[in-house]
Simulated scan of single mutants.
Amino acid sequence: MKRLTKRFLELLALLSAEAVLIGMTFLLCLLVFGYMVQEVFVYKDTGLDNALFSYAASHRSEGMTHFMRVISFFASADYLLVAPPLLVMVFAWFHSLRWYALKILMIAFTSTMLNQLLKSLFERPRPITAMLKESSLSFPSGHAMIGVSFYGLLIYIVWREVHNPFWKWLWISLLALLLLLIGYSRVYLNVHYATDVLAGYAMGILWLLLAIYLMKKLEKFYRQKYMAEKLEELES
Rank of each mutant, 00 (worst) to 15 (best):
P125I: 05
F67M: 06
R69H: 10
L208Q: 05
M113L: 13
K217G: 12
S96G: 00
K216T: 04
M64K: 11
R60M: 10
V70Q: 10
A77G: 06
W207E: 10
I205D: 03
P165V: 07
S96A: 11
V70Y: 07
L52W: 13
L12R: 13
A17G: 00
T129V: 12
C29Y: 07
F74D: 09
S141Y: 02
L175R: 07
G200C: 04
S141F: 02
S136Q: 04
A211H: 01
P140K: 04
W93K: 13
F41Q: 00
S173C: 08
V20P: 03
V158T: 13
F221Y: 14
D78L: 14
L179S: 01
A19Q: 15
F8S: 14
L12A: 15
K216G: 00
W167A: 04
I205V: 15
L31C: 03
L181N: 07
F221N: 14
A194G: 02
T112K: 12
F94Q: 12
L180R: 03
F67W: 07
L21D: 06
L137W: 06
R60S: 12
P140R: 04
A51R: 12
W169K: 14
L214T: 01
G34M: 09
G152E: 03
Y55G: 00
E229V: 15
M113H: 01
E18M: 04
H95S: 08
L189Q: 08
A144Q: 07
S135D: 02
P125N: 08
W99D: 12
F122Y: 15
D45E: 04
E229W: 15
L209H: 00
